[in-house]
Design a protein around this nucleic acid. Structure first.
Lengths: 122, 122
DNA sequence: CATAGCGCTATGTCTTGTCAAGTGCTATGC
DNA sequence: GCATAGCACTTGACAAGACATAGCGCTATG
């Protein structure tokens, strides 16, 4: 799109803002996982989306897909070093989130900040 | 959701992965902008989405909307300190992107330092 | 022998983002 | 003085994306 905003930054943002991407990477940080296992660890990603993300992340060189056995099916996804470097991104988000998101565990502040009224009364 | 995965991190990811959010914040780092101005600076966000994101970011305390004059319309959006703290998230993505994204030139793409003075904008 | 699990694709629905146009007004160019 | 373009947004129709669900061939359990 805009070559003027370009550089890696915009590209990276574009990539990381896709739904589930960060969750997937985060789930994969502790170690390799299988497909369904990963979907659950990411917080319940449905298989269609998961497969798509995985595809993209693999072709981006962020993770690798290793078929351990075809039948009984067993596949393992693990981060490449490029993927592990995303830890610092997630760490940064983590740090920010703990400081700036109300959250249920934030003491005497229940999560009543649900402003889903954005519907604007259609 | 998963109690173990939950808390601020997942929330923050959820928030930041919405389309344009990070672009908007990034565009706002150098200083406050108006609505259309911001939409363009973010890379061409359409007004509907922009308004929605802005709404959410404001109610999250990440930015403030100041109406400078109603007619001729002039509004200014600027980050709060909570918003500025996202700089380190964007920096992390930036750093990662420069290292790990091939880039449009697919080769030696010198990293132009065009927006590094953002922190002083206040 | 029935059930549940694996990795993953195909289906239809619902949510989300996008385009295009339009509002009331003012500051500019001719 | 009038046309044009800009401002900050809203609305409504539409496309793209994510969703739940079911299912494939197979095997390791109960």
């Amino acid at each position: 799109m805009d070559e003027h905003t370009f550089c890696a930054v915009a590209e990276a943002i574009q990539l990381l803002q896709e739904k589930w991407t960060l969750h997937i990477i985060r789930a994969l940080l502790p170690g390799p996982l299988g497909f369904n296992e990963l979907g659950r660890a990411a917080g319940g990603c449905n298989p269609a989306t998961l497969a798509q993300r995985l595809d993209r992340l693999e072709s981006q060189g962020i993770l690798t897909r290793t078929v351990e056995s075809v039948m009984p099916p067993r596949t393992s996804y693990k981060l490449t070093c490029s993927g592990y470097e995303l830890q610092e991104v997630i760490d940064a988000i983590d740090r920010w989130g703990r400081r700036n998101i109300p959250g249920p565990g934030a003491g005497a502040r229940p999560a009543l900040e649900h402003d889903e009224a954005a519907a604007t009364a259609r």
